[in-house]
Every structure is written in structure tokens, then in C-alpha cells.
């Protein structure tokens, strides 16, 4: 294609986005749009898959059968969300194997929050309440994003996430209504998960390299800072219901702005974790890579079995 032709196609493309038209897999799209979507969607899928690990840690130790089935269902949903997103991502012409390769080699990122350890049962509560809460805030606007397969996957994801947050909040509530030790456990979990949850919504707008282009393509509908503010405004009253304290001495309701003011986020910590130096980065990657490698013979055997059956059927038919 000549440069003029590409420029023309780009203009048509931009005007379709401006009219809120959806882009579908076989439509022409700029290479950068394709690449950006592969990056964001795969990062999102990887986060769902890695996100199963910190919670998987507690399935066998859930305090009751009720908690156990709920946690198991939540973790299974996360696997499902990963699969919706991987297949949506594959519509852009990248294979599942390439996506896994990017995750396993460290080329692709996943949400840094999953690099923190889950040391008590209360962490299951805090993750559902805060981490899924922040994820919902991030994901709801994506139901409207310009790339059709991504938007459709997100509609399904969002429908399922609200149970996740409620099951987490219920865990927190029960602990807060329990013995002083149990309430202390809930407070401790909030102390450890609060700041990483705020970081989860991404760097501040002035430091976010992708925001501007992503807003233009409607891949992003709200900036990181807007999402973070929304999360704080929504979550602080929930902490009050629980009767535990958000670990931020600067947190204060701003009557004039109609929102909370909050303290400085430790971005050095965020970048350290993103760069691989969080408390569990190595553990997560090791668990993921070994699950993939140790499962290889199963995948190969299943494929060989299907081929054998196929050949038999062909032989029978002829």
C-alpha cells in the first residue's frame, strides 16, 4: 500500500472511532492500534491468570465449606476471564503460544498487585473487596471500548466480578464482627492492601505514557487519576461500615471538591514491583512457568489422542 493510501485509511479509521463505531477483527486498523491492544489485552489476561495464584494459596485452608466453594468459584472465574481475554486478543493475529511466551519470558507484564503475598485469611477478604473493587472501576469503562471483541469480553467479565467483590467484603465483615483478634486481622489486611490497590490503577496521569493515545482510541475512557479518585471515594465509606481505618493519615473529605483528599503514594515501591523486585515476583513466575512446562506432556498426549481418533474415523469412512 502506498503512503497516501495508508493515510486515507487512517483517516477513515479515526473518524469511525470518533463516531463511536466499533472496530472488528477483520477491519483495517493502524499497526499501532493493533499492537497497543495486544499489549493491553494480554496484560489484562495475564493478570487474571497470575491473579489465581495468591488466592489459590488459601483454597485448601478456607475456614468453612461455604468460604471454600465461593473462593474456588472465584478463582475459576478468573481462569475463565483470562481465557475470554486471550481469545479476544488472538483475534488480532497473535497466537496463544506467543502470548504465553511473552508472559513467561517477562516481556509482557501483569498487574503488580499480584506480587504481594497472601499471609492470612483476611487477605482473601481484602483482595476481593479492594483488588476486585479497583479492577471493577478499571473495567466498567472498558465495556465500551472501541475494539469489539475486547468490549464483549469485558461485559462478561464485569457481570461476574461483582460477586467477587461481595464475597471479599463479606469475609471482611465477618472478621470485623468477630473477636478482637479477628478484627485486628482485617485491619492488618487493609493496612497491607490499601496502597498497592491504589497503585493498581496505574501511574499518575502526568507519568502515564500510554494514556493520551489510549483515550483517543477509546481504549481507555477515564484517566488513571480519575479512576483512582473514584475508587477512594467509593471505598472509604465501605471501610467505615466495617469499622476499620484506612492507613492514610492525610485522608480527608474535601467538602468543596466533593471528594477525598489523600496522601502521597509511594511510587518508588510501585516501580520496584513492576521491575520485578516485589515480594513475590519470582515465586509467581516460577509457579506459572512450571505449571506450563509440567503440563506439556498432557497437552501433547491429548493432541496425539485426538489425531489418532481422527485417523481412525477417516479409515472407517473410507
Amino acid at each position: 500500500m502506498s503512503e497516501a493510501e495508508i493515510k486515507n485509511l487512517e483517516e477513515i479509521f479515526e473518524s469511525r472511532i470518533a463516531r463511536d463505531e466499533k472496530i472488528e477483527p477483520k477491519d483495517w486498523m493502524p499497526e499501532k492500534y493493533r499492537k497497543t491492544h495486544i499489549r493491553q489485552m494480554s496484560q489484562h489476561a495475564h493478570s487474571e491468570i497470575i491473579g489465581m495464584l495468591p488466592e489459590g494459596n488459601w483454597i485448601t485452608r478456607a475456614p468453612s465449606l461455604r468460604r471454600k466453594v465461593a473462593l474456588l468459584a472465584k478463582v475459576q472465574d478468573e481462569g475463565g476471564h483470562g481465557l475470554y481475554l486471550y481469545s479476544a486478543c488472538e483475534t488480532l493475529g497473535i497466537s496463544r503460544d506467543e502470548l504465553f511466551e511473552q508472559l513467561h519470558s517477562g516481556k509482557a507484564k501483569y498487574s503488580s498487585i499480584f506480587n504481594y503475598p497472601t499471609v492470612t485469611w483476611a487477605d482473601m477478604g481484602a483482595i476481593g473487596w479492594l483488588v476486585d473493587g479497583a479492577a471493577i472501576i478499571n473495567q466498567v469503562p472498558l465495556c465500551n471500548t472501541s475494539y469489539g471483541p475486547y468490549a464483549r469480553a469485558m461485559v462478561r467479565v464485569c457481570k461476574e466480578e461483582s460477586f467477587h467483590q461481595r464475597q471479599g467484603f463479606e469475609i471482611m465483615l465477618k472478621l470485623c464482627q468477630g473477636s478482637p483478634e479477628q478484627k485486628e486481622m482485617a485491619q492488618d489486611a487493609l493496612n497491607r492492601w490499601w496502597w498497592p490497590s491504589l497503585m493498581m490503577l496505574g501511574p499518575t496521569d502526568d507519568k502515564s505514557v500510554h494514556t493520551e493515545q489510549s483515550m483517543k482510541w477509546k481504549l481507555k475512557r477515564k484517566t488513571n487519576d480519575e479512576l483512582r479518585q473514584q475508587f477512594i471515594d467509593q471505598t472509604v465509606p465501605q471501610a467505615e461500615v466495617l469499622g476499620i481505618t484506612v492507613p492514610d493519615p492525610d485522608l480527608k473529605w474535601n467538602e468543596e471538591k466533593g471528594q477525598y483528599d489523600f496522601g502521597e503514594i509511594d511510587w518508588d515501591e510501585f516501580w520496584q514491583v513492576v521491575k520485578g523486585h516485589g515480594p513475590c515476583n519470582k515465586e509467581r513466575m516460577t509457579a506459572r512457568v512450571s505449571a506450563w512446562e509440567e503440563g506439556e506432556w498432557v497437552r501433547d498426549a491429548a493432541m496425539a489422542y485426538a489425531d489418532k481418533k481422527d485417523k481412525k474415523n477417516v479409515a472407517k469412512a473410507s
Partner: peptide, 21 residues
């Protein structure tokens, strides 16, 4: 949506778990 499976039977079983929970 879509998914990976070795044959039609596995595709049905996986579809049950992935898309109709």
C-alpha cells in the same frame, strides 16, 4: 467467543466451563 481444544468433544466440555458457568 472461542477457545482451544484438541477435538470437538473437548471443545464442548471446555465451552461448558468457560462460557456457561
Amino acid at each position: 467467543g472461542s477457545l482451544h481444544a484438541t477435538d470437538a468433544e473437548m471443545a464442548l466440555e471446555n465451552a461448558r466451563d468457560v462460557y456457561t458457568r
